[in-house]
Design a protein around this nucleic acid. Sequence first.
RNA 1: GCGAAAGUGGCGGAAUUGGUAUACGCGCUGGAUUUAGGAUCCAGUUCUGCAAGGAGUGGGGGUUCGAGUCCCCCCUUUCGCACCA
Length: 833
Amino acid sequence: MSSTEIKSERYDFKTIEAKWQRHWQTSGLFKAPAKPDPKNKFYMLEMFAYPSGDIHMGHFRNYIIGDAVARWQMMKGKDVLHPFGWDSFGLPAERAAIKRGIHPKEWTMSNIEASRKTLQKVGILYDWDREVVSSEPDYYKWTQWFFIQLFNKGLAYRKKGFVNWCPEDKTVLANEQVKDGRCERCDTLVEKKEQVQWYFKITDYADRLVDGLDTLEGWPEHLKAIQREWIGRSYGAEIDFTIEESGEKLPVYTTRPDTIYGVTFMAISPESEILNSLNLDSEKQQQVDEYRRAAMAKTDIERTAASDEKDGVFTGKYAFNPFNDEKVQLWVADYVLAGYGTGAVMGVPAHDSRDFTFAKKYDIPIKVVIHPNKDTMLNVNEMDDAYTDAGPMVNSGEFDGLSGQEAIDAVTEHAETHNIGRKKKQFKLRDWLISRQRYWGCPIPIIHCRKCGEIAVPEDQLPVILPDVENFIPKGRSPLEDVPEFVNTKCPECGGEARRDADTMDTFVCSSWYYLRYLDAKNDKAPFDKEKADSWLPIDLYIGGITHATGHLIYFRFFQKFLKDIGWSNFEEPAIKMFNHGMVSDASGEVMSKSKGNVVSPISLMDQRGVDVTRLAMFFTAPSAKEVLWSDNSLTGVEKFVLKKLYPLNEKFRSSGCDLKQYFKKSDISESDWKLYLKLNQTIKRVSESYQQLHFNTAISALMELIRDYEQSQLKSDQLNDYIIVKAVQLIAPMAPHLAEELWQQFGLADTGSIFKSDWPEFDPEAITSDTVKIAVQINGKLRDTIIVAVDCDQETVEKAAFDSSRVTSYTNQGEIKKIIYVPGRILNIVVK
RNA sequence: GCGAAAGUGGCGGAAUUGGUAUACGCGCUGGAUUUAGGAUCCAGUUCUGCAAGGAGUGGGGGUUCGAGUCCCCCCUUUCGCACCA
């Protein structure tokens, strides 16, 4: 007979778990009201999940945090909304379906079924009535509706451009989906292709996306920093250079207009259109064409890998610096990015490292126009890198002597008044490329008519249904292209022959608004009802991985802002608090993965040791934000605690019928009982604070201490005995819900309803501090003794008590007492010299 | 290279934010019980020292009566950005 079986005779977790999971579902414990009291609501949300069918330790951790918080908030009397749904469109489903030779829809739906059951088995409570499935027409109808709203405002548009192309997945990717020049999903090197694609004009919201971060006090600073950097706002000036002969304007963006007199060349990106209109000599033209071809054939990695290598080709043409009419060489160089600024830069080798490297390589003149300060001069021949800091301008005509922001402002102002430039703000953020050449996604609701152009599908004709097709294997162009009954249609404007857009949307579009659909999931007239949605918004706590910092977490903020602009919401930001939990790795710190064979399934663990034990073990191992190095040893301590201490409380309960709402009075109970009552109230305080910070590990250790002290004392008062037991069980309930609910019933309290409908314990402010305190007595800051005194004791009495100790006097006798510092209730420090 | 966060026993981690460092748990050591193993119970467990004592929160300096906590320099680790002009 194994030990587990012996234990389970007493704590039969399988029966208990099944019983309460059934009960919570049938009683609708987590059914949220349609409209809550906005001042007393809590919207708890974990990130939209792809239905993979199983659940790994990382998911498990994510979900139990959300579950514990939701249950806790419910006990605190809040109207709680805790919904769940499935991000079911996209590549993984399609890939899995191809592998198994079944349709993605079939695969998706059976996975959702399995995943939902798993979550229920883990005891995670959601309001399943609000479940959404992004690949179902009743959901993606509204994804299309959003597209059309954006389209109508000019925020969804098509343009030709160089895009990231993944040759493995045979689709284009957004900038956010390319990591280190590789496809985020399959790690294939991304190529560049010039194609017409759909974009969302997120750059229109760039300022608000940056500025809004300052209002998000509940978001981790680290995460906000990542977003700020990604959006990459910078201030500078655009300055118009002029091309020799043609006189054509060639504007450049610079953050350092104060270096304008140091320009010795200009460089244009190989992708730039300007190069086509330069009228180059045939020899130069050939060299330039060849360079452009070579540069564009390179992947981003190749182009950026050797970042200290800079190369380019001289075009044979010149441009004029509008500030001093100096003639400078015009180059093509692939270190200049096409998508940023104007796709051309002014080269200031003395004050920009990249320009410096480039100029050195091609013997382009270097001209110093900034000095570190008035007394330190730069000598071109001695420079081995550019001087990029601020400093007084020199060799700059009327601007000499100005420095820093003052210099920048003066130069910019000069440019503006002479109409040769202007103040400019730039962003690194690009528009969001949302079209994909894949089958399993939300169709783009646009009809292309030869006469009328791009026409949005009228709203009453939504959804544009994704047709059921046999052959959805990616081949480099949209599979829907080859479905005539889908593509061929009539123009809604003129009624003539027209074609449907055959691309599907990036799944990140689907997940940009799902949090709103939960608020009115069944609405077939609108994506949601504004009143209902605004009564729940914003999300009070949003839990998910930091990996989405520059993707989803920017996109959904963009959508919320857009909704506000079109009058569909009163809120500017979707989530007031964001929390990133740490990863779960194996015991040696390796990420768990199938190929490494180190994956621990939370499901089999829970089968063997119980859901609540597994939950508590995960909570206890580390604070939620930190990485967990999981080993099954993590279970040992909490398992003992549950089996030997917590569950056996049912035998210690005395059924005294105590009043849970009352506080005890010191005069009514014995001194030793009072001591434990103090411990209880300190524990309530500590545990509540721990929940607030999602530091469940310290909540558990506080409860372990309480139960330890409880067992060591024999309580005289039956009332207090029961009071402490019940409060302790309430305190652990959000983390170990089945166990707590079971004990609650065994205590005979179930008549009043679920433990999660009971009042979260409040500490008795009269019973936080004991009336005696231990004071540390220090000599010169070093602990020498401790004394116990009354809490309201004055300094004189404490000193007297301290000097009664020979351990203290043996030090004070060795010198003169210079000073005595007393921190009431804590420390007495005697300075001896 | 730039930016951010972190560094506490053998291990996971605590420390009311400047006030008794190492709570709670794991592991380990000794003892009890047991035919044995496992399980359980009791005691111990930062290092050093027989002890009194001394040292001690990555290293070095500083502020303070008092520093894991604040300031400066350095080292290490993790993460993010990486030609954004």
